[in-house]
Simulated assay, not measured.
Amino acid sequence: MNLLGLTSGIVGIVNPFVPATIQRSAGYVTAPDGKRTPSYTTLPASAQIQALSARELQHLDGLNITGVLRKAYLAGDWRSVYRVGNQGGDRLQFAAAAPVPSTLQGTNWLIVQIFETWPDWCAVAIQLQMS
């Protein structure tokens, strides 16, 4: 059962999904001098952005994750750093123009924590990154 699909229409009236771009980590490229540069696979996405609850903020603070933080609901299965599977470091980018809210326009966010993961959607904590 696709719960995100069932609820997104109703919740979207109050807080709509906005277009975004997911950059899924594809590892890194090592230069001859040994410097590593991350590489990404870019995919279109849509995200619903919300404020974090007090409990979620407390949890992230306990993990020493600070900065500008939000919660994002995304279709699909996305990752924060998952060292065992050599995965993670996925990023979320928002366009520099409408229909993205002005507070998100042209921003880049790192997925820093997974709150919920299901076969067809996930809820993640994202942290604003310097461009």
Rank of each mutant, 00 (worst) to 15 (best):
46 S>C: 09
81 V>G: 01
79 R>N: 15
61 D>T: 13
111 I>R: 01
129 Q>P: 01
77 D>I: 12
72 A>K: 01
120 D>Y: 10
79 R>P: 00
8 S>T: 09
41 T>C: 03
79 R>G: 00
99 P>K: 03
41 T>F: 05
26 A>C: 02
121 W>F: 15
94 F>I: 09
77 D>R: 15
85 G>H: 08
105 Q>G: 05
93 Q>W: 02
125 A>W: 06
50 Q>P: 00
19 P>H: 08
63 L>T: 01
109 W>Q: 03
115 F>P: 00
104 L>D: 03
12 G>W: 11
52 L>S: 09
118 W>Y: 14
85 G>C: 02
74 L>A: 09
41 T>H: 11
45 A>C: 11
92 L>Q: 05
129 Q>S: 09
30 T>A: 12
17 F>A: 15
65 I>S: 01
86 N>L: 13
37 T>C: 00
92 L>C: 08
33 D>S: 13
84 V>E: 13
124 V>C: 02
106 G>A: 01
69 L>Y: 04
57 L>S: 12
120 D>R: 11
86 N>T: 07
6 L>P: 02
87 Q>T: 08
18 V>H: 09
105 Q>F: 01
13 I>L: 15
62 G>M: 10
61 D>E: 12
37 T>M: 05
12 G>M: 11
54 A>T: 14
7 T>F: 15
27 G>W: 03
124 V>G: 01
43 L>F: 11
112 V>A: 10
103 T>V: 08
98 A>C: 01
119 P>M: 02
47 A>C: 07
29 V>Y: 12
32 P>Q: 07
52 L>A: 11
39 S>Q: 15
14 V>G: 08
85 G>F: 02
100 V>F: 03
129 Q>D: 05
29 V>N: 12
22 I>F: 10
122 C>G: 10
118 W>C: 04
105 Q>D: 08
31 A>F: 05
128 L>R: 10
106 G>K: 00
44 P>N: 12
113 Q>M: 03
38 P>G: 08
74 L>G: 08
108 N>Y: 06
51 A>K: 07
111 I>C: 03
40 Y>M: 08
21 T>H: 06
61 D>H: 13
129 Q>I: 04
120 D>Q: 12
47 A>G: 04
57 L>T: 09
49 I>W: 01
109 W>E: 05
58 Q>R: 14
82 Y>I: 03
108 N>W: 04
26 A>L: 03
39 S>M: 13
92 L>E: 04
93 Q>A: 15
98 A>G: 08
66 T>Q: 10
3 L>Q: 13
37 T>P: 05
6 L>V: 14
92 L>D: 03
108 N>R: 14
82 Y>D: 15
38 P>R: 13
40 Y>G: 07
28 Y>N: 14
73 Y>T: 13
64 N>M: 07
50 Q>V: 03
95 A>L: 07
68 V>N: 13
67 G>R: 05
121 W>Q: 06
82 Y>V: 09
41 T>P: 00
